[in-house]
């Protein structure tokens, strides 16, 4: 399965990609992760690409297409929108979802991630909410694996954020089934051999 995570620098796009990748490796899967982001820390385009498969991957480090995406911001969405195959799953932050162009033919799921994260007092953890929802909806990794990978990845000097991140991941997963039925990544049309 291939996933693009698209947003702007500072939203935690690269962290979200790394957490998903580590969780998948911990579950014994083969993983490729690449990050494409500007030189600045905040405000520029940020795209994470995650590929997960049961065996050695043929996936390219510059992925020509994918079957799913997480949209954290509408700005720079054009970096990935045109590379989604028809019928892709798009999990989008609800506040920007209406501004995403080209949603026809895809399954768009709006996740009120920022609202959920803000409500729990950790607005910056919106990316973790989306990640939790993505895992729950696709079953690509267990939610507990995401939590463990997040704990592994947060640096020592940011340990204070672990608890909020964990709650955010679980809140995202708990947002289902209200958000909709599970999405079969393997059954997605035109799936690439990975």
């Amino acid at each position: 399965m291939e996933l693009f995570i698209s947003g702007i620098g500072g939203q935690g796009v690269q962290l979200a990609g790394k957490v998903l990748a580590l969780a998948a490796v911990a579950e014994g899967r083969h993983v490729m992760l690449s990050g494409d982001y500007g030189g600045h820390m905040r405000g520029g385009s940020s795209v994470g690409t995650v590929v997960v498969g049961p065996g050695p991957l043929r996936a390219l480090p510059v992925l020509p297409s994918a079957g799913s995406a997480i949209a954290m911001h509408n700005q720079y969405w054009e970096n990935v929108g045109g590379r989604l195959r028809p019928g892709s799953l798009i999990l989008a932050e609800a506040s920007i979802a209406p501004a995403l162009p080209g949603m026809e033919g895809h399954r768009l799921v709006q996740v009120p991630a920022t609202a959920i994260a803000t409500e729990m007092g950790a607005r910056m953890a919106a990316g973790m909410v989306l990640l939790g929802a993505y895992a729950a909806m696709t079953g690509i990794v267990a939610v507990d694996s995401l939590v463990a990978a997040m704990k592994e990845q947060i640096p020592v000097y940011r340990r204070q954020h672990i608890e909020a991140n964990e709650r955010a991941i679980r809140a995202g997963a708990d947002a289902l089934p209200a958000l909709g039925a599970p999405f079969d990544l393997d059954g997605a049309p035109l799936r690439e051999a990975v």
């Binding site: 990748a21 490796v25 899967r29 083969h30 993983v31 490729m32 992760l33 690449s34 480090p61 510059v62």
Partner: peptide
Amino acid sequence: NLLARTQVS
């Protein structure tokens, strides 16, 4: 650079 920076299991 792609080899150096892409993360792979």
